[in-house]
Structures are given as C-alpha cells and as structure tokens.
Design a protein around this nucleic acid. Structure first.
Lengths: 250, 250
DNA sequence: AACAAATGTGAGCGGTGCTCTTGCTTTACG
DNA sequence: CGTAAAGCAAGAGCACCGCTCACATTTGTT
C-alpha cells in the first residue's frame, strides 16, 4: 500500500513533541493506514471503526480517542484521496513542457485515469455518489478538491493566450446560456489571474465533464465489459481535448 | 410518490389467483413502495429491511418471506429505476418527429436530466458508484439497463443514414484506437440492424459520456454550487449533440 | 510526590442483516 | 370432506455496527 498521503504540512512546528504527542500521531497514522486498506479492499460503505480498531489490537471504544466518529474518518480519507489525486495529476502535468498544450491536457487526463483505475474506491469516495447523511465539511475539502480544477483553469487560460481555443460554435455553445450557467462563477478567486469568459469556461467544463465521465464510466463499468478500456479512453481523451484545444494547423 | 414502475408485464397470466397469491402480490408491492420511499428520503445505503418491515407493521423476520435479502430488494429497486428512466426517456423521444435528429437527441438528454434531478437517489442507484459487495445480476438488469442505449444507437444510425454525422476527425478520433476500444462490441445483437462502425460508435459513446457526465455532475454536485444548472446543462447538451450530429448546413 | 490530563477497558444501548424454531392458517388433493 | 402440505406470523437469537459512559490505568508536569 503506497502512502497515498501527500498533504502539504503548513505548520511544521518545531515543538519538542513529547512522547505522548508522538505516540498519538503514530496511532492516528496507523488508523488512517488500516482504514485505507479496508477502503481499498471492501469499499467505503463497509468501512467499520470496530474493524479498524480490531486490526490495531485495541478495544472498539478506544478508537474514539483518536477519531471523533466514522464520518470524521471518512472526511480524513476523502481529504487524503483528494491530495493523492491532485499530486499525481500535478506531477504528470508538470513533467510536460508548458508550451505543449495538448500534451499537458493529455498528461492530466491520463494521470487522472491511471490514478482512478489504481484506486477505484478512493475515486468513488470523491467522484462517486455522495454518502447519504454525510456531507464532507467544505472547509476541509475545498482546497484539495479544487486543486485539479485550478490546474485545468490555468491550462485553459494558456490555451486562450496562445490563441488555440476551439471555436465555441463548434460545440454549439450559446453565449447567453453560458453566461447564465457559469458567469457568476468567474468571480471566484480561482479565476482572478485569468482572463476567461463564460463561454470559454463552459468549453473547459465540457471537456472536463467528458474527461471525468470517461473515467467514471470505466471505473464504475457503466458500459459493461469493454474490449479495451485504455483504447476507448484514448479516444474520449482526444474528444475532450478537442473541446478546448484546436488542432495545431488551424 | 409516483408509481415509478412501468416494467412491461410479459406474462399476463389469467390464472384465478387465489386469496393467498393476491395477498402476496399486494405485500410485495407494499414492500417495494415503502422501500422506494425510504430510498427517496434516505438513499440506498440507509435502506433497511427492518425499517421497511416496521413501516408495514410486520415483524422484522417476516419480510424475509417476501424478499430474499437486502440485495434482492436492491436489485428490484434497480430494475424498477431502469424501467422508470427508460420509459421517461422513450416517451420524450417518441414525442419528437423522427426526422428531427437534433430534437431527438435533445429530447433524450433533457428527459434524462429531468428524471435524474427528480429521482436523485434512483439515479445514484443506477449510475452512481456501485454498492460494495453487491453486483446486480446481469440477467435482470441487462434489458432495462440497455434500453436507453438502444434508443441512442438507433438515433446514431439514423444520423449516419441521413449523412449528418459529425466528421470523426473533429473529435480527434483515431480509427485504430476506436477499433481496438469498441470494435468487438459491434457484434452485440443491439447493433444487428445497424450499419455502424467502430469510429461512429465511439463518437456516440463520447456524446453519451458527455451527456451522462453532465447529469452526474449536476445531481452529485461535483462542481459545487452552480449558478444555473439548467443553463449549464443546455450548453453541455449542445456540446454532446455536436459530437454526433453536424450542424444542418454542412 | 501529587495532581491532572491523556489513555485504555469493558459494559451497554439501540440499530442492522439474517436464521431458526414454534405454532397457526390457508390451500390443494385424495 | 378430511387430511396433508404449503404458506405465514411471531419471537428468540447470532454476529455485527456506531457510539456513550463509568471506571481504572498510565503518563507528563508542577
């Protein structure tokens, strides 16, 4: 089991960290590790605090000294998964030359797919049906949850700046609909450094929706058994790319 | 609660149907009705046979006379939802003139969305993350599950026949990838009456993936709060339509 | 050494899916 | 018509779950 965790450690307190505090961190890490194992083998719905405690050799009630509730554990796993995905995608993206726009899109898409295929349950945790009666606290998931989108927005703006944007009418986009649909979103801080308009953002959303839909469809086997998932994905990846980036000689 | 059910009744046995058999059918219908209510209010994961039995005034063990297990009840709900969705989509589609290709696509898309928005938990049951340790028996879900796809395939073939197909290179489709990805699928009986090739089918899958992704994204709120979901959907619907149907004057 | 905070422990509550046995009622058949 | 079979309601019970509480123990600090 890979560590999966890579959340940046904002407050690297150099406090001495007594024996007790150190042990607490270790136990918390153990809990998260075992929980991830259970998640990977049995899925989120089957995640049981009692089972995790049992695996760690502690009494069932003891785990509540370290984890507030099952939902809280789920939240930690979700945040963890978000970071894991974000770093995987970012790593792949950053390994591609900035001026290779198509390459950057493909890198993001392929990284997303391979992460999702490798961590299907984690993927389901963040992009699957929401767990009933549970809502991830926005203040903890917002940053990692939008990390991938931030990357996409930057790429989208680079495409615009390079004059490589696919013509919106190729997607049949109606400006007034796009404005109504996502215009207000452009006020978000995420778009502060960009010069994106509603139509372009909508193009980006179409591409992202197609991309995410491709991965979802494959991971959740929504189309039943497909001869070659990888090949099909390459086709859909190309289609999603074309939603935003026009072919070179155009 | 609308009946939701509309599965065709293939064997309308005119058997006398004694008192006992009649009661059994009534109880089974009651169970499904109450289960659907619970599903609509609390979601699939919170569906409890005990709670359903309690609502029906029967002892917890009694419900097992009518339902084999919780999974079996889930299967029935899934099949039910499939039929409900399929008839909603089919009804909307059939109300559109056959030669209005764009209209037919839009009708399917809008019907899908409005059904999903109106029955979010049922939608999650069908197109959400699969329930762990549970796999819907293919022989019971295949027919209703592919009903919508059958409709799309027919439309796709009509588009091809009308010479209105979007040029595949607009989607950046690579023939060899498409062949590897979905070529073998064309052997399925679903495509018997059509003359579709792998590339065209892949186009259709791209369009469907984008369409389904749009709905999923909205119902599961994957993008967070969006100003106007309806307007955004119209944009993505148009984009998905353009994956298969070229503009009229082309 | 003494004290308070952090931690470990086990019992217990109400909930779940599911099985089994015990009677009772309805149906079907000789 | 009577009897045997099949269907059914009811309850106890098993193992699991999330979670709480009172209590004992350990630990770090004053």
């Amino acid at each position: 089991m890979d560590p999966l965790t890579a959340s940046p450690d904002p407050d690297a307190t150099a406090a001495p960290l007594g024996k007790r505090a150190r042990n607490r961190l270790a136990v918390e890490a153990d809990i998260l590790r075992v929980a991830r194992e259970h998640l990977a083998t049995d899925g989120a719905a089957a995640l049981s605090l009692r089972a995790v405690a049992r695996d760690l050799g502690m009494v069932s009630s003891g785990i509540y000294r370290y984890v507030e509730s099952r939902d809280e554990l789920l939240t930690r796993l979700i945040v963890d998964s978000y970071w894991s995905l974000a770093t995987a995608v970012r790593t792949a993206h950053d390994a591609t030359p900035v001026d290779d726009l198509e390459g950057r899109w493909d890198a993001i898409g392929r990284a997303l797919r391979s992460w999702a295929v490798g961590h299907p349950h984690d993927f389901a945790l963040i992009y699957g049906s929401p767990v009933p009666d549970y809502e991830a606290p926005a203040e903890r998931t917002e940053e990692p949850g939008t990390a991938v989108l931030v990357l996409l927005v930057a790429l989208l703006d680079d495409v615009r700046r390079a004059g490589r944007l696919t013509a919106p009418d190729r997607l049949g986009l109606v400006a007034v609909h796009a404005e109504a649909g996502v215009g207000a979103l452009l006020e978000a801080p995420m778009f502060a450094a960009t010069e994106l308009d509603a139509v372009t953002l909508t193009q980006g959303l179409a591409a992202w929706t197609l991309l995410l839909g491709s991965v979802t469809s494959e991971v959740f086997a929504q189309l039943g058994p497909v001869p070659d998932g990888r090949a099909l994905f390459e086709c859909l990846l190309a289609a999603s790319r074309r939603c935003v980036i026009a072919p070179a000689g155009d």
